[in-house]
Write a protein that binds this DNA or RNA. Structure first.
Lengths: 105, 105
DNA sequence: TCGATATTTCGAAAATATTCGAATGCCGGA
DNA sequence: TCCGGCATTCGAATATTTTCGAAATATCGA
């Protein structure tokens, strides 16, 4: 079973997190995950090349936003809500709330 | 008197805002402004070249985070808190709160 | 062990961002 | 009108990011 690098909680830095969320595709992945549950990578996006999506998963994972585990042949993503809420209280909710408006684009 | 481009409220987009805040220098400018008041550009940073700082001001201004007005020979910066709070409730406070911790780096 | 499925990694091209020194623009006062 | 102070803009070097196709990796089931 394959494992991936995940930063530990104390290595999650705010600028890195903000950067990771500043891309529309990543922001969309983030908001979907924020509504709960784990997603298979495959199930999230169609129409974009796999390698592009994979790149964005990596950015989110290395920023500490997302946790990834492998189950069989699938890779499941979930939000590191526990860590993010502990480090940056209110941030996730504010971002998720902000994307609910029209300003996301 | 010189005027600068400022996006109108409805043109402020979340990814752009998050991007602008994802640079440590800009994040620091942001948090200083978030504590209130207007700052002369000059008074904010010493030790870095003016042109570098000026570049970051521009990014913040064009993202809609900062308002800039010219008074005589000085340029004063202030946070567009009214717009940001209206568009993204809780976001400013969450980011400011997050920088209070050690995770800013 | 072979093939199918799910996803990553590599590599390279194009786009974008950062940094700084030098040159420039704007304003007020002598 | 010329000068000095404050800040921006230009231009160029460097670095980083984004994107995608092709090749590679990992796992499961027949």
């Amino acid at each position: 079973m394959r494992t991936y690098y995940h930063p530990s909680r104390e290595d999650i830095a705010l600028p890195t997190v903000l950067y990771a969320l500043s891309d529309p595709i990543r922001l969309e992945i983030f908001t979907r995950l924020a509504h709960g549950g784990e997603y298979s990578c495959d199930s999230m996006f169609r129409g974009l090349p796999r390698s592009t999506i994979s790149h964005h998963y990596k950015v989110l994972r290395e920023a500490g936003i997302v946790r990834k585990r492998t189950v069989g042949t699938q890779h499941l993503l979930s939000l590191r809500r526990d860590d993010l809420d502990a480090l940056f209280p209110g941030l996730i909710d504010a971002v998720v709330g902000a994307t609910a408006g029209t300003a996301v684009r």
